[in-house]
């Protein structure tokens, strides 16, 4: 518990992570209680004059259909956050399974697995997601899957090297000598010891995943209108940017602030957990 307090202290004393934390809490809170907070229905058209500038009635103005941008952004947080988290979860779980397995088995399996990772790394991950979407078709959940898939090589490589280090620790040898099976050793003994690393790289990647999904939605491959996903909102606001910039500025701003908060938090998390030093040594 003492150590936990120290980590928390290191965390809160940093301005960046404190800001990121507060902002994220607000966003998550807004996303959960969207129906209560949002002044209007996100999909109700003509709640006010079309393309009206920000005012007390419409904090962030209205769009071309007269929908309240503020309400749409609050509902949009639900999409952006959840799709980001889900795609990272998908990527990190698959990457962990792949990385830990090839590291533990070693030998030829490791060599072939590592080469597969290298080949996948050859493609820019955004291109890889585009390719996947092109194959499986357009749609928000397809984009989530594509972005998650494209992040696997990155996760797998880091987790493989962390698992390799843990694998060399004598307590893993002790597990073998106690007659444990391979799956038990991987799940029960290697995985918990690389968990700090998994948390840190997942958090650091979350921002990127949110951006990638928003970008694909912006290109019209992900969320389809009228869904209030931030990327899609940016895309539909594009045409009116000259006379109604608020239809683009506010979704963009929230996207920016969310991603920045996540990154600040992740950055600080990696320092607070001191992930690199604590592999397998239990210093956390």
């Amino acid at each position: 518990m003492e150590k936990f307090k120290i980590i928390l202290k290191r965390f809160l004393l940093n301005k960046g992570s404190a800001f990121g934390g507060v902002f994220l809490i607000l966003i998550v809170f807004g996303a959960i209680f969207a129906p209560i907070i949002a002044p209007y229905d996100w999909n109700a058209v003509d709640t006010g004059p079309r393309l009206s500038p920000p005012s007390w009635d419409f904090l962030f103005g209205t769009d071309i259909h007269g929908r309240d941008v503020f309400s749409r952004i609050i509902y949009g947080a639900r999409y952006s956050l959840s799709v980001g988290v889900i795609s990272v979860l998908f990527g990190i779980i698959s990457g962990s399974i792949f990385g830990v397995t090839i590291a533990y088995i070693g030998g030829r399996v490791d060599i072939i697995g590592s080469r597969i990772i290298d080949v996948m790394f050859g493609f820019p991950s955004f291109l890889l997601s585009l390719l996947v979407v092109a194959i499986i078709g357009v749609g928000l959940w397809n984009v989530v899957f594509a972005v998650g898939l494209a992040s696997i090589p990155h996760f797998a490589r880091i987790i493989r090297s962390a698992a390799l280090q843990v694998k060399e620790q004598p307590y893993i040898e002790a597990c073998v000598s106690l007659g444990y099976g391979n799956i038990r050793i991987m799940l029960n003994h290697i995985l918990p010891n690389i968990f700090p690393i998994i948390i840190v790289i997942a958090t650091l990647d979350l921002g990127g995943a949110i951006i990638s999904i928003a970008s694909l939605s912006f290109l019209g491959l992900g969320a389809q209108p009228p869904e209030p996903e931030w990327g899609a909102m940016l895309s539909s606001g594009r045409e009116y940017m000259r006379y109604a910039p608020w239809t683009m500025i506010y979704p963009g701003l929230f996207l920016f602030l969310t991603v920045m908060s996540v990154n600040l938090l992740g950055d600080r998390l990696s320092i607070a957990l001191d992930a690199r030093q604590s592999i397998g040594k239990g210093k956390v």
């Binding site: 620790q169 004598p170 307590y171 040898e173 002790a174 597990c175 000598s177 106690l178 007659g179 003994h189 918990p192 010891n193 968990f195 397998g280 040594k281 239990g282």
Partner: peptide, 20 residues
């Protein structure tokens, strides 16, 4: 068979899983 033959390791710091 491993149940019948066991090992005591040299490094007491590295031979115990820190998370258990």
């Amino acid at each position: 068979i491993r149940q019948k033959m066991q090992m005591i390791f040299q490094d007491p710091f590295a031979s115990l899983n820190p998370r258990k």
